[in-house]
Amino acid sequence: MTQTRKRIPIERVSEFVQDGDSVWLGGWTVVRKPFAMAYELIRAGKKNLHLVNNPGGPETDLLVGCGCAAKTETNYIGHELFGHPYNFRRRFEQPESNQGFRHDDWTVATGSLRIMAGAMGIPFIPTKFLRGSDILNPELDGFRDLRGIDPKVPKRKFMMLKDPFWEGEEVVLIPAIRPDVCLIHAQEAGEDGTVRITGGLFLDYYAAVAAKITIVSAEKIVSREALEDTREENAIPGEAVDAVVEAPFGAHPTAVHGCYDNDPWWFRDYLKASKNEGTMQKWVDEWIVGPGSFKGYLEKVGARRLGKITADPELSYSATIKRRLDKLEEVN
């Protein structure tokens, strides 16, 4: 029987993640990223994580910048229109900053197929994508020297197969993603782990089912009755979730549909700081290490800023927030 009370305090999240684990962080680029939990991993000093979320956003750039992630395997790492992922970029552009970091490039469609294969428990899946692209060029395989050696890395990136069933087309077989841990932030969750997500599920359902351990933080923990009343809106069954955390603003600075928008002030400060190692380290000390907890972090962000990004209940985003960083006005 499914354990019915899975609530843990946020401080315990890092106990579920081991150094070297492959980790899927839910959401999509600058939307619904599990930031409160990512900050916990950084405070706990996790090392050698292998990030497999497709796609990655500021949380991925941050984990790379903090030295928590040694490998990334994804279709995108960035902040959308806010600016570039400088920590990630530095690992390539400056050999002295590389620190043994490895990256493997994929695409949105194939990342989706790979995590679906993981959820289905099948080892690989065929696709018609990737043909003609350098993404499969064996000489440009970022994980080439890890294949067959690192147990978290598939033994090969792909294999061509002539369709044996129908027209005989050459298709590409690509490996399943099998995360050790999946971290998701959602609008609501029950004590039993049932997850409710609005405004786009992204690949979170598949990742939760595929991962060995799934932890969900939610804006609000709600009663079983509330989840049963409108059960069609529930996105992930409690069966696929091992622990739940209540964390209001737990995706800050990314947007959560119906709750809050992107925090442009965070992106402005982060982008400026992440341009070099020294200022990046200062930023981490000031915003993650210094406050000591997610509660302390939110106090530092401040109620006024959190009020500014709060979503309009009808629109589900903030109609007043300005998103141009070069024209941003101070709040405090």
């Binding site: 959308e80 469609a109 690949l203 998103r323």
Partner: peptide
């Protein structure tokens, strides 16, 4: 919308699929 996952993209739409449906079903 600020990106293709922005709540602004969702505000007026008839279906909120995932990339699995859009890319692997419809596009592929």
């Amino acid at each position: 919308p600020f990106c293709v996952a922005d709540p602004r993209a969702v505000y007026r739409t008839t279906w909120t699929p995932t990339s699995a449906e859009v890319m692997c079903h419809f596009l592929q």
